[in-house]
Amino acid sequence: MTLIDYLSTILLIAGALFFLAGTLGLLRFPDIYTRLHALTKADNVGLGLIVIGLALQSESLASAGKLILIWLLVMFAGASVSNLIASGALQRGIRLWKR
């Protein structure tokens, strides 16, 4: 394994851990708004770390660019959709969780 390999392995594992955090949040957080936090933030960071880790390994600049493009698209769509769901939930009177 080269230095690049070690670096991308670290990034990939870190990304997977963010995904784990996102799933834990989805399963354990008490209401829809907190679950939205867990998902959109953790998963997009996780995907970002994985994308960077894979881009280091990719054969050409073009394919690295495509990876980053996919990440940007997922972030853009995810951010918009989570906003839509949150505002829709507020409109429908889903209450915020209080301790």
Partner: peptide, 23 residues
């Protein structure tokens, strides 16, 4: 428990599937 929770989980599946496919 709400419909939005189910949809949200489907969104998570989408992002995770993207990561799996790229890997």
């Amino acid at each position: 428990p709400t419909a939005a929770d189910r949809m949200l989980a489907a969104q998570l599946f989408g992002t995770t599937a993207v990561a799996i496919l790229l890997i």
